[in-house]
Amino acid sequence: MSILTVDGISKTFKGLKALISVSFDVKEGEIYGIIGPNGSGKTTLINCITGFVKYDSGNVFFKGKNISKWPPHKIARAGVTRTFQIMRPYYSLPAYKNLIIPLWAPRARKLGGWRGGGKHGDRNTVAVDILEELGFERDSRVPYKPASALPTGYLKRLELARCIAMRPEIILCDEIFSGLSVSEIAGLMPLIEKLKIEGITLIMVEHRLKELFQVADRVMALAFGEKIAEGKSYEVIEDSRVKEAYLGSEEV
């Protein structure tokens, strides 16, 4: 059963065609990867789905409801959240206080959020619990440090934590592996799998193909705003148009 249907989204930035009629389906509970070279429209696609950018034509259906004209906060409230490629924590607040905000958000207060923390119990305690689940050491000072003092690896986890605190249905991860070392990525992989077990659908935009292919059920490739391939990861990477987009063509 498909949980998110994207139907022919097009977006132009003053004549530059960023997305040309992109369509795809995401099934409930799967991990869906989106790959493509730089500037192929991956982040724009995420921005369009989550309502941060208004697109010219096309529709997005979430659980059968048309969410195309909704403002971003309403889409997030329905359960479609995102992480940001350039991390956007609340720099002046301590790491665990960063999670108070999504736990306070209407969705978490109504439905309980992650482990019911938005509705029941002390939000501070729940925030530290969530951070611990995501690999912040509880007994260290890390969760209590201001977000401005945290290294990139923790900030990426914090991005993810901010999403799951709301207990969303879909998380759109915008390059959570970029800028991380191999060991840090290895530390994140079990988390991704854990989210899948929890029944959260993940859409991952990624440049690190090897790591993505380990977890993704299906992959879509974009080039210059067009969808050029879709399917199992090994099929997509063997596709001639994908190879051409990544490596270039020999024909002049």
Binding site: T50, P71, H73, A76, I101, A105, R162
Partner: peptide
């Protein structure tokens, strides 16, 4: 942006 992404009306 993060506030919006958390579903809160800024």
């Amino acid at each position: 942006q993060s506030i919006r992404a958390s579903g809160i009306n800024v």
